[in-house]
Design a protein around this nucleic acid. Structure first.
Lengths: 238, 238
DNA sequence: CAAACAAACATGTATATACAAGTTGTTTGA
DNA sequence: TCAAACAACTTGTATATACATGTTTGTTTG
């Protein structure tokens, strides 16, 4: 018993992804969809606007809604997706090694990133992601202990996101991310199979809850040859 | 005489950016805004949803709309923004050197990227961006001549985007982008001040018009130390 | 035969109403 | 005193209607 417009959205997404609706063709008009789904035009429009935001269709006034070619076949690394969800989608079978898991008194840098006081503590988690025998990614997470009091090695091995959302019932709602290229640290060299690469890609993630409180800072350090970021962007009307 | 909801959106954006409305505070309720702006609640909701999409506010059911801290101070390299617009925002004063501008019979790779036939031609443009005396970025553009018949060196020196939108009246509407790390090519080494860096950041851009036709492919090759990508992402409800 | 016009149809904006559902503070009752 | 119930807020969803504006197509008109 979920929303109507989300149901319609998902239905159309499925039709696009299975090829039932062809790229570069027009979707049925809003009025026709309204009749088909037995609903009002506004509800249809909500569904279509979602499709537009997600890069599935392009709405053109006076014409209709064009299905964008290759929509989401190139899955986005953009958006807010956990490593596990991502790996699942790609069909890869990575191994996660929990290298470090401790209650930690944050240093100045992490205190700043998470807006913490001197008394606060964080969970410091460091995990290595291995693909096909190669250690490719080093994930370093810092979680505010006021929001996440307990965590175990087992959770870190499967999915922290899943634990937060389904066990602690925290609703993660948005993130700011920053991508920069850096020289490998000693730690990077020690833990990753860098094979002579001179840089790592550092994806810094600031993760927020539904009430806009910052609770997690993550650095995801990738070997440059295995890094790929795909994004869909609309031009904002000024 | 533009839209109401866009006007309201922009008005609130301004209040947030000038600090008139403080971060982590609540916006007035939708009903109050409705009265203030003398409009209907739905119109207010459209404005607020735009603010939410753009990372300015976080809406919480039952509570209200929280103003997100640091909204857009960290300007996004994400989104679909031209180099000139970006440089303007940052207050940098870059120099653009047009290194190459020619009508070109595309090779296999570019034909594939732009979905062209063997007979089509493209504008091949290669520009170097210089900051503070250092050649940092190499932009390589390929434009479908069927859509852009003419272009001049002067245009390339100022802003291609501006020319397309304001002179040719093309409406650029969305882009797919991909970011990867590559080894510098001979060309990169010759044209950029790489100073011993072993990689370049390659931002591939596929730019589409309003009617969903692909008309431009761009590679923006950055020196890694000067590269920074900032993004705002919402978690999609499954 | 071509240009002008009109009709039909597409999406965009604005408004109104009703109810659902989550949050918060207050009142009520045991 | 304390907890449950309630009232008064908040945002979310669904529907209906009207008109604006852009596109296409066919028809009329000169």
């Amino acid at each position: 018993m979920t929303n109507k417009y989300l149901t319609i959205h998902n239905d159309i997404v499925q039709q696009i992804e299975t090829g039932e609706i062809k790229p570069n063709s027009l979707l049925p008009s809003e009025n026709e969809l309204k009749d088909r789904y037995n609903t009002s035009r506004e509800t249809i429009r909500k569904a279509l606007n979602l499709l537009s935001q997600n890069g599935y269709i392009q709405k053109v006034r006076g014409k209709g809604s064009i299905v964008i070619k290759g929509a989401k076949l190139n899955f986005p690394v953009s958006g807010l997706v956990s490593f596990k969800e991502l790996a699942d989608k790609m069909g890869e079978k990575p191994i996660t090694i929990v290298h470090e898991l401790e209650l930690w008194k944050p240093d100045e840098y992490i205190r700043q990133q998470l807006n913490l006081s001197n008394k606060d503590t964080v969970w410091k988690i460091s995990r290595i992601r291995e693909f096909g025998g190669e250690k490719i990614i080093l994930d370093k997470d810092y979680l505010n202990t006021k929001i996440v009091p307990h965590i175990t090695k087992e959770i870190c091995e499967s999915s922290i996101f899943y634990y937060l959302e389904h066990e602690l019932n925290l609703s993660i709602s948005f993130a700011k991310k920053e991508i920069v290229i850096e020289e490998p640290t000693e730690e990077d060299r020690a833990l990753l199979d860098l094979e002579g690469f001179h840089n790592v890609v550092n994806i810094k993630n600031y993760v927020y809850l539904e009430d806009a409180t910052l609770f997690q800072y993550t650095e995801s350090r990738h070997r440059p040859d295995k890094f790929r970021f795909v994004d869909f962007a609309r031009r904002n009307p000024l």
